[in-house]
Structures are given as structure tokens and as C-alpha cells.
Amino acid sequence: MPLLRVDDVVVQFGGVTAVNHANFQVEEGTVTGLIGPNGAGKTTCFNVITGLQAPTAGRVFLDGKDITRMPVHRRARHGMGRTFQRLEAFGSLTVEDNVRVALDVHNGFRGLLRDVDGSADLEIAALLDRVGILEYAEERADSVPTGTARLLEVARALACDPRLLLLDEPSSGLDEAETKAFGSLLLELAAEGRTILMVEHDMDLVLRVCHGIHVLDFGSIIAEGTPAEIRTNPVVQKAYLGYSDDSSAADLDETIAAPVSEEVAL
């Protein structure tokens, strides 16, 4: 059973359809890419999955459970975490306090003891170190560089020990070396059994770390497959580059019908 299933979701704003009968699923323990041109509806999909946007139609399942109407904070308690495309760090708190808030919320009353014995501090330091921003721990979150703030959002989400982590353009603002390290971190997280769904424009990163890729265009999934399949897929090239050469219809059908089970076999 897939960990996440997006079932025929439609989102309309006024007269505009942002997501148009999107269907896809994410298998447990994989890194999955959600790619597509600007305005394809990727972030809106994320908002529907995390509960920040109610869909006009369709349903979302987490681990087989229908969560379409579940409030945002309860989804978090069911193991869902996310980062944002437009940064949403808590600007007036320090970097470490950003993570501490997440940890406090996650641990609830149990966490009070950990504050006393100091293990919370160690855990925060470990999380910041893991994403590589420990040196910024005591700076205010609104004064750190973009890339650092993005990584902070990842650390903050990880503090809640999510099963499913949704990352919205995590690499923008990172330099080449940071992106490389970040890719390795994603693979590590997947190896730990976490599931990652990522909207990302850095195709190098997507092709390197994703086990499977879904391509969204006009609010619908137009292709899915392994990185190798996606890269050579004419439908995808057309969506991204506006190819007007005639790719054979047979090719299209094959790609779209590519079974999901194949894409996760690494």
C-alpha cells in the first residue's frame, strides 16, 4: 500500500483550475520527485496534501486513511512534515529556537523532562548539524542566507520525526556543494525509512536522488516513471520546452501507463 495517495484531486480558484484531476501515489521509503513547469499546480498539490488548501473535489489518503478533511495540525501528528517554497521560518526566533519549537510541540508534555536533562539541546544540535547549519544556531532566522533558511526548515520538519516529508524547492538558494550534500542527506533519510516527496527544479538533483518522478502539467499528471524514463520522455520534453515535433502517440501511452511499482525498484 502506498504511504500517500492523491486521488482525483481538483482545485479551482474562482474560474481558474490550478489542479485538474491529479492522481498519484508515493511509496513508503522512497524519494519521489514532483516536477513540472511553472504554474503546473505543484505547490497547490502540496497545500492540499498538508491541509492548507481544501480541494474542490477528490481525496487524499495517508497510509490508507482518508485525511481529506483532517485539519493541518492533526496531519502533522500523523507524521507529515513540510517545507515551503516561499520561506516560512519563524523570523524573530533564533535558528535553534525554530527547531526547539518543533521539538516542543512534537514531544508535548514528555518534552518537559528532556528540557531539564538537557537532551533536547543535544537533539537540536544534532539536527542542525545533520543539515549542516550548526554554525548558525544562535542567529535570528530572518538574518541567515536563503539556503540556510531552507535547510533550517528541513531540520525543523525533521524535529517532528515525520514519516512523510514534503519539500518544496529545497535546493534553491543552495550552492553546488551544498546541493550535493543535501542530495546525500535525502538518500540517508530514505534509507532510514522516511518517505520524501519533493518539488524541485534542479533536474540534476532530481535525476540523482529520486526513485520515481511524477510530472505535473496543467494541474494533471502527464507522465510518471524512473529518472531515466522521464529524461527521455517526449511528453516531458514537450511540457518543459514546448517541443512541437511529432512524438508518436504510442510512446506517450507507454510512458503514461508505466506502472508505479517499477519506478520504485532502484
Partner: peptide, 20 residues
């Protein structure tokens, strides 16, 4: 800290599990 977090970014606070 939670109050400040909710004030700074309600959306992020919500996705961390805070019932605002």
C-alpha cells in the same frame, strides 16, 4: 516560543502540529 512562531508563520506552525 510557540506564540511567536504562530505569529511569525501560522502556516508553518500548523504543519508542525500546533492547533492554533
Amino acid at each position: 516560543r510557540i506564540l511567536i512562531a504562530v505569529r511569525d508563520s501560522p502556516a508553518a506552525a500548523g504543519t508542525l502540529g500546533i492547533d492554533m
